[in-house]
C-alpha cells in the first residue's frame, strides 16, 4: 500500500462490492423466498407446478449464494492487483 489515500480507496471499493453482494443475498433469501413470495406468485411464471418463491426457498437462494461468493472472489482478486495489495 503506497499511501493512506489508496488504502482508503481500496477499502471503500471492497465495502462497496460487499454491500452489493449482501443486498442480493438478502433479496433472494429473505425477499424472494419469504417476504416477497406472494408478489412473485402473481407473476405468470411457474416452475415444476409451483411458484418461483418456493424454488428460491429450496434451490434458487443456495445457487445464488454460490455465484455471489465466486463473483466476490474474482472481483476482489482484480481489485487486489489494481491496488497492488495482492499476495506476491
Amino acid at each position: 500500500m503506497s499511501d493512506d489515500k489508496s488504502a482508503a480507496a481500496y477499502w471503500s471499493a471492497n465495502v462497496r462490492v460487499i454491500t452489493i453482494c449482501l443486498i442480493i443475498w438478502a433479496l433472494v433469501s429473505f425477499g424472494f423466498a419469504i417476504l416477497l413470495r406472494p408478489l412473485l406468485a402473481m407473476l405468470p411464471i411457474t416452475i415444476g407446478g409451483t411458484d418461483l418463491g418456493f424454488w428460491f426457498a429450496q434451490q434458487g437462494s443456495i445457487l445464488t449464494f454460490i455465484v455471489l461468493i465466486f463473483y466476490y472472489t474474482w472481483y476482489m482478486n482484480r481489485v487486489d492487483r489494481e491496488f497492488g495489495v495482492d499476495e506476491e
Binding site: 453482494c21 426457498a57 429450496q58 437462494s61 443456495i62 449464494f65 461468493i69
Partner: peptide
C-alpha cells in the same frame, strides 16, 4: 422448513465476505 436450507448455506456468504 426451507429456513434450514437457506440458513445453513447463507452463512457462508457472510463468512466469505465479512
Amino acid at each position: 422448513n426451507s429456513t434450514f436450507l437457506m440458513g445453513w448455506t447463507g452463512g457462508y456468504v457472510l463468512l466469505a465476505l465479512l
